[in-house]
């Protein structure tokens, strides 16, 4: 007599699963990765691979020897994402051992401490990046200049990022109009022909990845759109008030890690709210905090801190903002 499977309904399932979603994100990161390799050359490639490898290694070691669990999750792609995103958030000239330390913090402290995939309250890659930024401020803010198809193993020429130029200039009391002459053109910023962290330079490459994720239904539009829109509106208001003191909104959209943050980091499903209403609030919160830090804070860039702060607010948002209930009062 044959035995039949018994389970509760439903008996069919959507084809998407966690593994496919995670690898989908990895595929979405490829355009940005290619652009960074094009502009920063071999060091960018080495750094990304090193970050991915060390993230995988740390996850493997922790699971095998600390958790002693028989099931390993390194193939689910989440550690690869963490590694890639961490690499995308550092300058290509970063010493190799620092990215390994960053990976250890990202995987060990930010992810596995809480029980692994799905349980971490903060985006692991961002925790790793902020750790590196605070521990090694000089290395983390020395930006190599772009040199397309550079095949040498080290970058030599360095320069500030566009946000850095503005911040420093404003502190010296110079006006925006003059400072804007020193920053790259918007076309360069859109394509990625600017200095900065590995993955954040090219807005177009990130958008391609974002559209891919939207089509594959890995992310929804809520967080990226509300994030980018709120930055645009907030900086727009400031710019209208005083265009001599505040940079224009388009500059804010293209400069720094905003695109990368809005498309890949803030949308991390584990650390963002579950319902769409809360996601919109989350996006706006990220946007407002980013501008606050950029304009009035000590750091020229505020994306990582903004997202981490909103990560901390996620459980609260989940609790307070409820989806509309059918037939509810």
């Amino acid at each position: 007599m044959s035995t039949y499977i018994l389970s509760g309904s439903p008996h069919v399932h959507d084809t998407q699963d966690v593994k496919k979603i995670m690898w989908g994100v990895v595929y979405a990161l490829i355009p940005a990765f290619l652009v960074s390799v094009y502009f920063f050359g071999i060091p960018a490639l080495m750094l990304s691979l090193l970050a991915v490898a060390s993230c995988l290694l740390f996850e493997f070691l922790i699971q095998k020897y600390l958790f002693k669990s028989s099931e390993l999750t390194i193939t689910d792609g989440s550690a690869v994402i963490t590694g890639l995103l961490l690499a995308f958030n550092v300058p290509s000239s970063l010493p190799w051992w620092q990215i390994v330390v960053g990976s250890l913090v990202a995987i060990g402290a930010a992810k596995m401490t809480f029980g692994g995939l799905g349980k971490n309250p903060f985006n692991p890659a961002l925790v790793g990046r902020v750790f590196l930024l605070i521990s090694f401020p000089v290395d983390m803010t020395t930006w190599p200049k772009v040199s397309p198809l550079n095949t040498s193993l080290t970058d030599v020429i360095t320069g500030p990022t566009s946000l850095g130029i503005i911040k420093e200039g404003l502190m010296k009391g110079e006006s925006i109009g003059k400072l804007m002459q020193n920053v790259p053109t918007y076309t360069d910023m859109f394509v990625g022909n600017i200095g900065g962290s590995l993955g954040e330079i090219s807005a177009i490459a990130i958008l391609i990845g974002g559209i891919y994720m939207l089509v594959r239904k890995i992310i929804t539009w809520h967080i990226p759109v509300s994030y980018i829109l709120s930055v645009f509106v907030f900086t727009g208001i400031l710019w209208l008030i005083n265009p001599e003191k505040y940079a224009d909104p388009v500059f804010h959209l293209l400069a720094g890690g905003l695109m990368l943050g809005a498309v890949f980091m803030a949308t991390d499903m584990v650390t963002s709210p579950v319902n769409h209403k809360a996601q919109l609030i989350f996006g706006v919160g990220c946007g407002v905090l980013t501008v606050l830090i950029r304009v009035w804070g000590a750091y020229p860039e505020g994306v990582s801190f903004a997202i981490l702060i909103m990560n901390a607010a996620t459980p609260l948002l989940n609790n307070m903002v409820k989806p509309k209930r059918f037939g509810g009062a």
Partner: peptide, 25 residues
Amino acid sequence: VSSRMKVYNCVRCGKCVSACPMGLE
């Protein structure tokens, strides 16, 4: 077609919340 898929940790993607026709969580 019909056997249950592998169970992962909940990744809090919120798909269940968006899919619920009754607006539950």
